[in-house]
């Protein structure tokens, strides 16, 4: 079966230890997590995990079943890239002198739709949000000039269809 990038969204109670519990489900199946973001949601005490993995549809279905089975998990979904709107962010730290000596850099920043978030005497920081490929592209363009530091966040995404988490919570209490 064909492997693909899947985005798994998990809505959970905001409980200690749940990150570990969910991670073990991947480890048990020898699946490598590509990226992971945990954050609060629009609902009180409900957290959202966004996990990206390169797996088959059969694997993703089974892992969703195992995730949903966990007591503190409210609901889990999986989506392909087509079914969700997703981005990640990256920060590039570059020597300040480059900004003045290498005119091209300014062009690269402008063209890539990224922003300078900080400038100090030693370095400046460029922020770029977008698809993974866009960030890769910017990285490749900046790399020849020397990148002092590079960080990339996990994916965050919202789905095209509606996720009715509040309703699910209400229903399970009645």
């Amino acid at each position: 079966m064909k492997k693909e990038i899947y985005t798994i969204s998990v809505y959970t109670e905001n409980n200690l230890g749940l990150l570990n519990r969910i991670a073990t489900l991947f480890i048990k199946r020898h699946i490598n997590i590509e990226s992971l973001t945990v954050s609060s949601t629009e609902i009180d005490n409900v957290s959202r995990f966004i996990i990206v993995a390169f797996i088959t549809e059969d694997q993703v279905k089974k892992i969703i079943g195992q995730i949903e089975k966990q007591v503190d998990v409210i609901k889990a979904y999986y989506h392909t890239n087509e079914e969700s709107i997703y981005i990640q962010s990256a920060l590039f730290k570059v020597k300040s002198s480059l900004l003045f000596d290498e005119r091209q850099i300014q062009n690269i920043i402008k063209k890539s739709n990224s922003q300078i978030v900080t400038v100090s005497r030693e370095f400046f920081v460029i922020e770029k949000s977008g698809r993974k490929e866009e960030i890769d592209k910017l990285y490749n363009e900046l790399a020849p000039f020397g990148i002092m530091q590079f960080v990339r966040s996990g994916r965050i995404s919202v789905t095209k269809e509606e996720m009715k988490i509040s309703e699910i919570l209400k229903k399970q209490l009645n």
Binding site: G17, N20, T24, K28, Q70, V71, D72
Partner: peptide, 14 residues
Amino acid sequence: IVSISTPVTKWNYQ
């Protein structure tokens, strides 16, 4: 023990 028992419990808590 909470971490150790996580993959083999239905639920655990400290």
